[in-house]
């Protein structure tokens, strides 16, 4: 019986953890090309999720998905153009931090004015009754979250490895100046990486919304935890964010149950501090191969 409870907690933790992983993956995408992060990533997720809530009433869940993903891309490109490009151009160390936080706050205010401050129910595309699997209850939407998150990361990785444009993204991440000499418009690559990053956040937002709730205040905590995951897993390791996300998701549900929900954020943040102290490049972080 105790084991069943544990298994149940782990299963719930996995779904949340995969969401953290996808958002953290988004942090990696922009960090790779520009060494900058969108600190409004959580608000990007929130905004897209609320746009999804409005769209879903006209189209249903599955047709809403591509629309919200497209919206996420546009939103990310706007963030890069308004908040990041100038900082990169002037080689500002911190301009982009303030600018992306400011844009995040603006998006949050915008959302509060359009959709209000309350948490809202997001219609689930799948039955909301859990499926029993060997005594463990799993929501169908949780399965979609795990598969969807993996599919999204796999799609981006495949694009980077196989297509000429994806390789141009990797080249820009490796050496921006040299990529420019190849004829690659690296500013455009950075805008694109922001678009892709916000698109993954949008995807995470509409995946998690049917399980939790949505609302103008959903972004902050998710963005921050995913940031912790990106640090724990390493900002350069695709594998790391999955493992980091799962570690955080599972420790959260375990702590929430066995200790107190009041402490559920503590283990993840303690882990974050430990990683920063002992392995600052992240558990799976690697330093780039460089040979002269």
């Amino acid at each position: 019986m105790d084991f069943l409870i544990l298994a149940q907690l782990v299963v719930s933790g996995i779904a949340v953890g995969m969401i953290y992983g996808v958002i953290a993956f988004g942090y990696q995408l922009t960090f790779a090309t520009s060494k900058t992060l969108n600190f409004g990533q959580g608000e990007a997720l929130m905004l897209s999720s609320l746009v999804g809530l409005t769209v879903v009433q006209f189209t249903g869940y599955w047709i809403m998905l591509p629309i919200v993903l497209a919206f996420g891309m546009v939103q990310g490109a706007v963030v890069e153009r308004l908040g990041v490009r100038q900082a990169i151009k002037t080689k500002s160390e911190s301009g982009w931090i303030m600018a992306t936080i400011a844009l995040g706050i603006i998006f949050k205010n915008l959302a509060e004015n359009i959709w209000g401050r309350d948490a809202l129910k997001f219609p689930s595309p799948l039955p909301e009754a859990p499926i029993g699997l060997m005594g463990v209850n799993i929501l169908p939407m949780e399965i979609v979250i795990v598969l969807g998150a993996l599919a999204m990361m796999l799609a981006v990785e495949t694009f980077n490895r196989r297509s000429i444009f994806g390789k141009a993204v990797v080249a820009t991440a490796n050496d921006r100046e040299a990529a420019g000499l190849m004829g690659i418009n690296t500013s455009l690559v950075i805008t694109f990486s922001y678009a892709l990053s916000s698109m993954t956040a949008a995807f995470a937002g509409v995946l998690i919304a049917p399980v939790t709730l949505t609302g103008a205040s959903m972004g902050g905590a998710l963005g921050l935890k995913a940031f912790a995951v990106a640090i724990i897993g390493g900002l350069s390791s695709g594998m790391g964010v999955i493992v980091g996300g799962l570690i955080l998701g599972i420790t959260e549900t375990l702590t929430g149950f066995y200790l107190s929900t009041g402490y559920k954020d503590v283990p993840g943040l303690v882990l974050l501090l430990l990683v920063l102290s002992f392995k600052p490049s992240g558990l799976f972080g690697r330093s780039a191969i460089k040979k002269v």
């Binding site: 390789k167 141009a168 990797v170 990529a179």
Partner: peptide
């Protein structure tokens, strides 16, 4: 061909060459 070579360390040799032809491929 810049000072210090500046090859793309993570890309394969062949992909580095394809990057050289990026403008032709696109």
């Amino acid at each position: 061909s810049p000072e210090g070579r500046r090859v793309f360390p993570v890309l394969s040799v062949e992909d580095n060459l394809l990057m050289g032809a990026f403008t032709r491929l696109t």
